[in-house]
Design a protein around this nucleic acid. Structure first.
Lengths: 204, 204
DNA sequence: GTCTATAACTCGATAGAC
DNA sequence: GTCTATCGAGTTATAGAC
């Protein structure tokens, strides 16, 4: 899901992150917007304020290795957000409402361009690049696991929780997609409400 | 969502569809698998058994016009499937189970490559090509409308039905995405079950 | 580690014969 | 309507100076 806070990429500013870090960020952001094939390595280098030589120095595997790093980065970012959100106060319904609200805000503020970096980077590449597919699958599985743990902790039966968690991630992902495609935040907000209802149905 | 039945593309067979039709089918199928930027016009021409000259004869607007036609085709195909499924016998729960089952079968049989043609073609292109974004948004809206009508017909209140329909499409779309990414049909099957529960909750 | 130059290739699109 | 040839610009990736 979309998680990135728009950041400074001023190539002239001091004490900025290291070159490798800037390259990964640029790759993740650009592939989130334009997908794997729509993003060029030269564009990544330029956005990162690095040269082509530096990109291949840190990522000798080329574009494919860069995409795997970008997916891992997207995974980590949303894992952090999801973890913090789920650990926050409030009922699960409130937590889901805050999460979808936040995703909707970020998506709208980006002009509906910045959706889920994992999805955008991996979709259409799975058949050609198994490494990218694997990284994306790991992300989805990790997110499902986080939701599942929270459901179990709040009293849902284990098997039920694992199943519900899969649908929670599917629905969040699909709602962000629908919001992006329709350029309308309602799918995300409705997903938050309906998921809360679905979960309440299974709580004891 | 993924709807296509694998079809003959034998370039030598007789009484096959016209050139324009073959080009649209090839464009839709290839962009469904590889996305807009991952699919070349030459590849489309070859898969369609046509020449580059023919492609530009029927689609003078080039790749962009071809992508819009491909999205419209994907829209029509799933609109037909959804319409027939919803009009079929059985409770809405049964109907959703059959639909997700069918989507899962198609996805698995394609080796997890053929997801939703509308999503795959439009994701990552919205900012650059408003025509493609618009065609994709129309598809999502149409599908939501179909589900909404069926919900209203089976006794759900109008506003409730419209809202539920949005989440039904979001969840189906997200579950197909999750199934594709994880190469596992369970997200789709669970989505069918959970959506049935959610809808039952709102029936009177 | 960073930079430039370039090799090797593919892309979308066009022109014009048939 | 169909075909081939090709243009110009773009791509990924590499080589080698600094």
């Amino acid at each position: 899901m979309q998680t990135r806070t728009r950041q400074q990429t001023d190539p002239a500013s001091d004490d900025r992150p290291g070159t490798r870090e800037r390259i990964v960020r640029a790759a993740s952001t650009l592939m989130q917007r334009q997908g794997y094939d729509g993003t060029g390595i030269k564009q990544i280098a330029q956005e990162a304020g690095a040269t082509l030589g530096s990109v291949y120095h840190f990522f000798p595997g080329g574009k494919q290795e860069l995409a795997v790093a970008a997916v891992h980065r997207g995974d980590e970012e949303f894992t952090d957000i999801l973890g913090e959100t789920l650990a926050g106060e409030g009922t699960l319904a409130e937590v889901l409402g805050a999460l979808t609200r936040s995703l909707a805000d970020g998506l709208r503020e980006s002009g509906w361009t910045d959706g889920c970096p994992v999805t955008a980077t991996s979709l259409g590449t799975a058949a050609r690049f198994p490494d990218i597919q694997r990284a994306a699958a790991e992300a989805f599985t990790r997110w499902q696991g986080l939701v599942s743990e929270r459901l179990i902790a709040s009293g849902t039966a284990e098997e039920t929780a694992r199943e519900l968690a899969v649908t929670v991630i599917s629905t969040l992902e699909g709602a962000e997609l629908a919001a992006q495609v329709c350029q309308d935040e309602r799918p995300l907000l409705l997903a938050g409400r309906h998921l809360a209802e679905l979960i309440a149905l299974h709580e004891r």
